[in-house]
Amino acid sequence: MAKSIDVSDLNIYYGDFLAVEGVTIPIAAKSVTAFIGPSGCGKSSFLRSLNRMHEVIPGARVEGKIIIDGNDLYGAGTDPVAVRREIGMVFQRPNPFPTMSIYENVIAGMRLNAKRMKKSEADDAVEKSLRSANLWAEVEDRLRRPGSSLSGGQQQRLCIARAIAVEPQVLLMDEPCSALDPISTSAIEDLIHDLQHDYTIVIVTHNMQQAARVSETTAFFNLSAVGEPGRLVEYGSTTKIFSNPDNESTEAYISGRFG
């Protein structure tokens, strides 16, 4: 189910503006890869290019190659809709569908894939996904309540349940805890820990302790000056990046000294 990703020489543009330049990185299957770096360095743009969410912004495009399990993500015959069904995404702010109940939120993605679903199948899928997201115990008696009635941390776990309900190969997380309190953050980090046995996870985070806690591989992005494109400075095992990085700017960023 989980798949590895190979990115080579990727440039990301917004119109004529080159936002990210020359990213080459392998992302291992069934592991957690964290992207760290200052704001505006292109980590989120890069993350969004991994499931072609990038291109929903008018004028945005990419150059270069992303290969997922031998398939070219940006190949001529690749349907972005199909790509997004395989590569799930969790956003910075929890975004359950406000017009749907908790139950409907979880199976929203499955409904897209299979229009006709038996009631029992749907029930099972909802329970399985919510259990995987460590949310089942908290919501099992109010599945018909609106998703927006939950707390922020619960909503984010609902979004994760929704994303994994379709059993994607890769799960992308764009600062999933930045809007949450420490307790909810800890719940999500535990969840990421459990999920990596089944999924390839890529997470963008501003919280370096979080990167150190959850990831096996860390990639550091930086930009040399405002207006310059962001670049991948280096990547490696999280232990190495946090203890003995090759690049000086990585060390400066991690230790809190900038520039």
């Binding site: 499931n51 969410m53 929903v56 809709v81 199909a82 790509v83 997004r84 069904r85 395989e86 799930g88 995404m89 956003f91 702010r93 975004n95 359950p96 569908f97 406000p98 929203a108 993605g109 897209l112 894939n113 979004c159 929704r162 994303a163 379709v166």
Partner: peptide, 13 residues
């Protein structure tokens, strides 16, 4: 909200 539209698109809608 753009957030909800993107949520749907990211699910493969």
């Amino acid at each position: 909200p753009r957030l909800h539209e993107e949520a749907a698109l990211a699910l493969g809608a």
